[in-house]
Design a protein around this nucleic acid. Sequence first.
RNA 1: GCCGAUUUAGCUUAGCUGGUGGAGCGUGGGACUGUUAAUCCCAAGGUCGUGGGUUCGAGCCCCACAAUCGGCGCCA
Length: 449
Amino acid sequence: MGKTVWIGEVQDGLYDGKTVELKGWIKRTRGSNKMRFIVLRDSTGEIQCVGKKDTIGEESFLALKEALIESSVILNGTVNVDERSEGGHELVVNAVEIVGAVDPERPFPINKEALDVVDEDGEPMPGGSEFLLNHRHLYLRTSRMTTMLKLRSSAFGAIHNYFRAGDFIEYQAPNFVAGAVEGGSTLFEVPYFDKVAYLTQSWQLYAEAAMPALERLYTIAPSFRAEESRTRRHLTEFWHAEMEVAWATNDEIMAHGEGVVRHIASTLLDERESELTSLNRDLDAIARYADSPYPKMRYDEAVEILQSKGVEVEWGEDLDYSKEKILTQDFDLPHFLTHYPKIAKPFYHRVDPDDEKYVLCHDLLAPEGYGEIIGGGERTWSEEEILRRLDEEGTPHEPYQFYIDTRSYGGVPHGGFGLGVDRVVSWLAGASHIREVIPFPRTSRRVTP
RNA sequence: GCCGAUUUAGCUUAGCUGGUGGAGCGUGGGACUGUUAAUCCCAAGGUCGUGGGUUCGAGCCCCACAAUCGGCGCCA
C-alpha cells in the first residue's frame, strides 16, 4: 500500500491528462447536490478535486458528501488543467475510497475562527491560543505549521552540511549531567536512581573533553534550561547547534558562526523559496543575510552607541534584551558583539591576554528584534587559570573535575559556539513566536501535549 | 522571581445601569450543476473557569483559588 503520486507533482504539471490515484486528507469541501468540490491536501500541496454525481454514481457521491474535514481518502481520477482551480490543476474524480472517516459527533475542531489569534496589541500570533496549544497534535497539519516544519528541516540539513563540508566530526554528549555550564542559569533536576542528576544545558564541557581527540567537532542536540522566561524567544527545551575547534581564535570561531548562519539563509532560499514567499518573507532580506559579511563591534563600542542614544548603561553590565533591541533596531544584518567585560561572563571564557578586563568572546545578534542567536568564544584553557577563575566565582571544583583534568594533559587554545537553531529558524521565517517553529514547544508553563 | 491581562456552546465572540444569555463558524436536516474556508432556509447545542460572598435577584459587583496568555529579568 504505497503511494506514487504526490499532489505537488500534479500541480507542477507532471500528470496533465493522466489518470492518477491521489492519497491525502480533506482540507475542505463545498458543492451542490450534483457535484462536490474536495480540496485534498498531502505533505506536498493541495489540489481541488471535482466529483460529479453522474460520473461517480450515487454511492460514491454520498460518501464524498459525508466525508468531513481531515478525513483521509483515496481519489482516482483524471488530471485536468483548469484555471478555475487554485494551482491551475484539478482532479476529475471517478472513484472514491474513504480510508479514515471523521465522526460527525467529533468534527475536526480547528476551524478558521480558531486560527485567527491576535495578541494584546492586535498583532497576529498564529497558533498562540490556549485552544490551539492544547490541540497542537492537530494544529501540526495546518499549512502554516507544515511550512515552518519544512523550513526547520532545511535549516537542520544546512547546519549538518556546513560542518561536514568543513571536515567536522559529529559528536554526541550525555543529556544527564552532574553540573551546570551556564553560570546563573537554572538546571532541571531529575531523580537518577538514588542520586540527583540534571538535564544538560549545553554540550560544551563534554565537547571540550573530546577536542584533543577530534579537533573539529559539532552537534545538533536539545538543551534544557529551567528559566521561567516568558518571552517570544525562549523555550525550556531548545535545539542547540554547537561546535568546538582546537587551536582556534575568537575570529576564526566567529567566521564559522557567520558561515553557518549564512549557509542556513542560502539553503532556505535554494530549497524553500515558495515557503518563504507564502509567509510573506522579504527574499531580498534573506539574500542579504546569505551574502553579506556580518559587522563586528566591541562591547565598549556598543555601550558608547547606547549611551549616545541616551540609554543608561554602566560599563561592566551584561546587555539585556531591551538594550540589545535598541542597539539592533537600525541593523539590517546580524552583528557580532565581542570582548565583553570579564565580570559579565562565566569562568570558561578566556581572558584577553592584551587586556585582562575583557574576555575573548562573541554574541551574534539577529536583526528584526530576534535577539541573540549565537554565543561563543575562546575557552579558558590552562589548568591554573581554570582553577583561579572557578575560585573567583566561588564555583565548587568537584563537578568539573573531569573538565579540569582535560587541561592537565596537553591543554591547547580552543573555542566554539552555541547556536539556537529554533531562534534562527524563527528569525528567518519571520515567526511571531519561537514556538511557531517547533512542533511541540516546551515552555515554563506547558509540557503538554 | 516580578508586572499586566484573559476565562460565556466544539471554535471565535456579543452581552447596556445587576432584572428570562444573542450571533457567526462547525455539526444535523433541507435547497442548489463550477464552487474558491460557496450561497439560501431550518434545528440541536450553555452548571457563563472553580469555590465563597453581597443582593429580592449575579455572566456583570467583592474575595480567594486555578488554568492560560503577554511583557520584564536571564539566556541560545
